[in-house]
Computed example of a mutant assay.
Amino acid sequence: MTELHKGPRGQRRGRGARERILDAAQNLFREQGINNTGMNQLCEVANVSKHTAYQHFTSKDELITEHLRQQDPGTMPEVFDRADLTPRERLLAAFEKPATSTPGGTRLCPFIEAAVEITDPEHPARILAREYKKSVAARLTETAREAGAVDPELLGEQLALLLDGASVRTRTLGTDTDPTAAGIAATLIEHAIPETAPPRPRDSAGEMPRA
């Protein structure tokens, strides 16, 4: 398990407490899970009092939800917003291993982790995780449409399922399954998008024209 460091002493109050709490939550939730992390331990790692923690987050549930919001607020902008790549290349880039991935590539997607650990389907974090996964599939579908896919909705759902499956299998086995997932994605894309299909242009507002 990665050693978790406490925040600097003498910074219990004032600016930076919120960031330290979120950093501690990210590390602890990743290393030992959401349900196994209590507020006492989280406050100790963040070097804040419980009073300060509850000034920033009214409950652990609110902290979990904000933790998820911080993970990927733009829905993979490092992939989908890259102007230097063609739409087909952006689809493939979704399966490239992030430069910030943990050693061994064993970190589970935090949205999947929250959905697994939190049983209440109406919990704000569960709702956020569900909406995030829908947004990933939507962006994959939009990019597949730009690339000229015959059935962009189907390809988007296939690639979204592949991303999530690779994340879970990597965490379960403790081995890097990204190269295998990338190979499968390339095959799916090759069959779904004719090589001669021209990318569909966006309009001046950045939207795809309606058929």
Score class of each variant (00 low, 15 high):
residue 1 M to W: 09
residue 1 M to N: 12
residue 3 E to H: 13
residue 6 K to R: 15
residue 7 G to W: 08
residue 7 G to D: 06
residue 7 G to R: 09
residue 8 P to C: 09
residue 13 R to V: 05
residue 14 G to R: 10
residue 14 G to K: 14
residue 16 G to T: 10
residue 20 R to Q: 06
residue 20 R to G: 02
residue 25 A to G: 08
residue 26 Q to D: 12
residue 28 L to N: 11
residue 30 R to V: 06
residue 33 G to P: 04
residue 34 I to A: 05
residue 36 N to H: 10
residue 37 T to N: 04
residue 41 Q to V: 11
residue 43 C to Q: 07
residue 44 E to S: 14
residue 46 A to I: 03
residue 49 S to G: 13
residue 51 H to E: 15
residue 52 T to G: 04
residue 58 T to M: 12
residue 59 S to Q: 08
residue 59 S to H: 07
residue 60 K to D: 13
residue 62 E to I: 09
residue 65 T to V: 08
residue 75 T to Y: 08
residue 86 T to Y: 03
residue 91 L to C: 07
residue 91 L to P: 07
residue 93 A to M: 04
residue 93 A to I: 02
residue 102 T to V: 09
residue 103 P to D: 14
residue 108 L to N: 11
residue 114 A to W: 01
residue 122 E to H: 10
residue 125 A to Q: 02
residue 130 R to I: 00
residue 130 R to G: 05
residue 131 E to R: 06
residue 131 E to Q: 08
residue 134 K to G: 01
residue 135 S to H: 11
residue 136 V to D: 10
residue 137 A to T: 01
residue 140 L to Q: 02
residue 140 L to Y: 00
residue 142 E to W: 00
residue 142 E to C: 00
residue 145 R to F: 00
residue 146 E to D: 03
residue 147 A to I: 01
residue 150 V to C: 06
residue 151 D to K: 03
residue 151 D to A: 03
residue 152 P to E: 05
residue 155 L to K: 02
residue 160 A to V: 06
residue 163 L to S: 14
residue 165 G to H: 14
residue 170 T to I: 08
residue 170 T to M: 12
residue 171 R to S: 14
residue 172 T to W: 05
residue 174 G to D: 15
residue 179 P to M: 12
residue 180 T to A: 12
residue 180 T to P: 01
residue 180 T to L: 13
residue 181 A to T: 03
residue 183 G to V: 06
residue 184 I to E: 11
residue 186 A to H: 12
residue 191 H to N: 12
residue 199 P to E: 00
residue 200 R to V: 00
residue 200 R to E: 01
residue 203 D to H: 02
residue 203 D to T: 02
residue 204 S to T: 00
residue 206 G to Q: 02
residue 206 G to K: 01
residue 207 E to L: 02
residue 209 P to G: 01
